[in-house]
């Protein structure tokens, strides 16, 4: 008590008025950046090769917008949907107790991660060379027929011409989705393994089946670890749709821009247009990723951190930190 009185009685010391440390380095950096920016703007405005009016005129034309919606956006969405779903299946297979499933899953990820996407797409684009028709029925029917002395036995239920179903879009989708599944499988596996073993035990002790505990307990928690890299994968996928040029898929943004450029011999403005379109689309995805991460951080993330912050504040204020109601 006495010390308290002493401190209150003593005159409050003068506020500190010191000369702050100077940062000349910062000013130099700003100056250099300013000059560089000015040079860049100057380049953009004065260099004829950009041909802005031509670019703006062409980049919103219907074939390009259609290519953007179908070849880029739709392709990204479907390839990611298939990739994520298949990836979860492969990850669960990889972690299963069945050695055959484990082996198959390993082989799958090995193959699709080892072959570059561009090469994979080129292969899928030409897969029609293997079969003129794709048919479903009894496998090895002709060979089986020969075994029983029947010539040219055909036990086919239905079939398609590969030209009909393996269109450029389907071939591209297949290539992108299958390769994505391999990467997603690794991400999901890491996510599942990041969940505490105690969670599985608790769920099992409550009588949940393996499927139930995966769906209700482990995967929702793994999401926290899975979502951020999946966002990156989606952005990478969006950019990789430009590789569809090599399948080829004609109804696709980059294919169309490239075609306009080649036709008009003004290739550079169309490449700049491609940059701008991809910048725009990836920025939208970044916003989506932010909200997804916020959603799956429920229960620990924001609420937990806010509570810790409140605790800190309460403790500093000399209050009882246990009293803080979240």
């Amino acid at each position: 008590m006495t010390t308290d009185q002493v401190t209150t009685e003593r005159a409050r010391p003068e506020p500190i008025r010191a000369v702050p440390v100077r940062h000349p380095g910062r000013w130099i950096t700003v100056a250099v950046l300013g000059v560089l920016t000015a040079m860049f703007v100057h380049l953009l405005v004065t260099n004829e090769a950009f041909n802005w009016s031509f670019m703006v005129d062409r980049m919103f034309r219907p074939p390009i917008i259609e290519g953007l919606l179908r070849g880029t956006v739709l392709m990204t969405v479907t390839a990611m949907l298939i990739g994520v779903t298949l990836g979860v299946v492969i990850a669960v297979m990889r972690l299963s107790e069945n050695p055959i499933l484990r082996g198959v899953a390993w082989l799958y990820t090995w193959f699709f991660r080892a072959v570059p996407r561009l090469v994979l797409l080129a292969v899928f684009g030409n897969i029609g060379i293997l079969w003129s028709r794709i048919e479903f029925g009894v496998p090895f029917d002709t060979q089986l027929g020969q075994l029983f002395g029947i010539d040219n036995l055909q036990l086919r239920l239905f079939g398609f011409s590969s030209h009909d179903i393996l269109t450029g879009f389907m071939a591209g989708l297949l290539g992108l989705a299958l390769s994505e599944a391999a990467y997603m499988a690794e991400i999901v596996r890491a996510g599942i393994q990041s969940v505490d073993q105690g969670q599985t035990e608790a769920a099992q002790a409550l009588g949940m089946s393996r499927g139930q505990l995966l769906r209700r307990v482990v995967l929702p928690q793994a999401m926290r670890v899975i979502i951020p890299p999946t966002g990156n994968e989606t952005i990478a996928m969006l950019k990789d749709t430009s590789l569809l040029l090599y399948v080829p898929v004609s109804v696709e943004l980059f294919f169309q821009l490239d075609a306009v450029g080649n036709r008009t011999f003004k290739i550079f403005p169309m490449y700049v247009a491609a940059c701008l379109w991809y910048l725009f689309l990836t920025s939208i995805l970044l916003v989506g990723q932010y909200f997804l991460e916020r959603h799956f951080g429920k229960g620990y993330g924001t609420a937990g951190r806010a509570r810790l912050r409140l605790r800190g504040v309460a403790a500093e204020a000399g209050g009882n930190p246990g009293e803080v109601k979240p």
Partner: peptide, 13 residues
């Protein structure tokens, strides 16, 4: 059979 663990193992989500 109910089981209670040393480290609680509640579902955090």
């Amino acid at each position: 059979i109910g089981m209670v663990f040393q480290r609680f193992n509640l579902f955090p989500h």
